[in-house]
């Protein structure tokens, strides 16, 4: 499976949820639904702010500690960007259903106990942001995430954006970084051995992907731009997805 495909997204795919989105990139496909603000359960109720509930459901098998870990990371970063103070004593529920993950053709996977990979984080993050936007939940900023791996190659170390399962297997460290639309670092999670220098390089690469300045040039020149930067332009992608959704919705005007 090729990792360098462009991301794809659709908004409002589920008719009964308040907001929903389907996102696929680098072999990962995730569908998300957002309901909220709705009535919170007693134990989740907070007198001053809304409780953000994130549920990650693997495609096959039952969820375990890895899913709970991803949920807690997502929950804390989404709480940062949603204006939770606007909805005291309520609940904003984000359900993420993993549909497809890239397979490693060289290994037979154990599937009954699902074990989600760290590299699925950007897909989960992007989908939840898109679904929140589709549900019209007020947020202080949008955000984009990306996964970066440091892979040893002929003695030297190479930085790989959106690593494939095979690359993750041989990688020395895997990092997930998320930036808000105001170019602030929202999330930084790392796995493996790395130096400060390596992390700085990773940070720069991720920032380039998540917050590339809006290009004034259109058409041919933009295509060229994309090539030399290496990796997709997440901020532009988020914007264009929403623009097309809004145009489709306001078609009647």
């Amino acid at each position: 499976m090729t990792a360098s495909t462009l991301p794809e997204a659709a908004l409002g795919v589920l008719p009964r949820a308040d907001g929903s989105a389907k996102y696929s990139h680098a072999g990962y496909t995730v569908t998300a639904s957002v309901n909220g603000p709705i009535e919170a359960q007693r134990r989740d109720e907070h007198p001053y702010e809304a409780h953000v509930d994130v549920i990650v459901r693997p495609a096959a098998g039952v969820g375990g500690t890895r899913e709970r870990h991803l949920e807690s990371i997502l929950q804390s970063s989404l709480t940062q960007i949603i204006l939770v103070k606007n909805f005291p004593r309520s609940l904003i529920q984000v359900v993420l259903q993993v549909e497809d993950t890239p397979e490693n053709d060289y290994v037979n996977t154990k599937l009954v106990q699902a074990s989600l990979n760290f590299a699925i984080m950007p897909a989960l993050f992007q989908t939840s942001v898109l679904a929140l936007l589709s549900a019209g939940v007020p947020m202080r900023a949008t955000a984009a995430a990306t996964a970066v791996a440091v892979v040893p190659e002929d003695g030297a170390k190479k930085i790989v954006v959106d690593p494939s399962p095979r690359q993750i297997e041989i990688a020395q460290s895997v990092h997930v970084l998320a930036f808000t639309s105001q170019e602030e670092l929202l999330l930084a999670e790392s796995e493996g051995d790395f130096t400060v220098k390596e992390w700085d390089d990773v940070y720069e690469t991720a920032q380039k992907i998540c917050c590339r300045p809006a290009s004034t040039k259109e058409g041919m020149e933009m295509v060229l731009d994309e090539e030399d930067a290496g990796g997709p332009d997440m901020r532009h992608f988020l914007r264009s997805t929403l623009e097309s959704k809004v145009t489709a919705d306001l078609h009647w005007k």
């Binding site: 009964r16 072999g27 496909t29 098998g61 549909e99 497809d100 397979e103 599937l111």
Partner: peptide, 23 residues
Amino acid sequence: GDQYGVADVTLGKTRVLAKASAE
């Protein structure tokens, strides 16, 4: 789906996804 054993069924507004796996 792209993988073997993933079926997405839509019946009007009802939508069900089934995934088969082996071990």
